[in-house]
């Protein structure tokens, strides 16, 4: 699946997008896999209360299942308007 990062998550991880091969069943499991990979992910996801997630461009949450999902995006709380 494609994993996208925005704003300070993109800056901390250092890339806007990557393709991830994973068997993670939920968003939380995917985050745990990423955090275990490298320090920059651990830094970015240190406080997940400050991170929002969208699945296939719809706002979701960390307990959500990844079954059939093609695009996961992580970003800070939005500041539009």
């Amino acid at each position: 699946m494609d994993v996208l990062y925005f704003a300070w998550l993109r800056e901390r991880i250092g890339i806007p997008k990557e393709t991830v091969e994973t068997d993670a069943a939920t968003v939380s499991e995917l985050v745990a896999e990423l955090v275990a990979r490298e320090e920059r992910y651990a830094t970015a996801f240190a406080d997940t209360s400050a991170v929002r997630v969208a699945l296939d461009q719809e706002l979701s949450d960390f307990d959500a299942a990844l079954d059939g999902v093609r695009e996961v995006a992580f970003f800070p709380p939005m500041t539009g308007g």
Partner: peptide, 20 residues
């Protein structure tokens, strides 16, 4: 739009840059 549209603002000043 303020908190459900995916926009992120960053202020760039003379001395640095900070996410809002």
């Amino acid at each position: 739009l303020k908190s459900r549209a995916p926009f992120w603002k960053k202020e760039i000043t003379e001395t640095g840059a900070e996410w809002v």
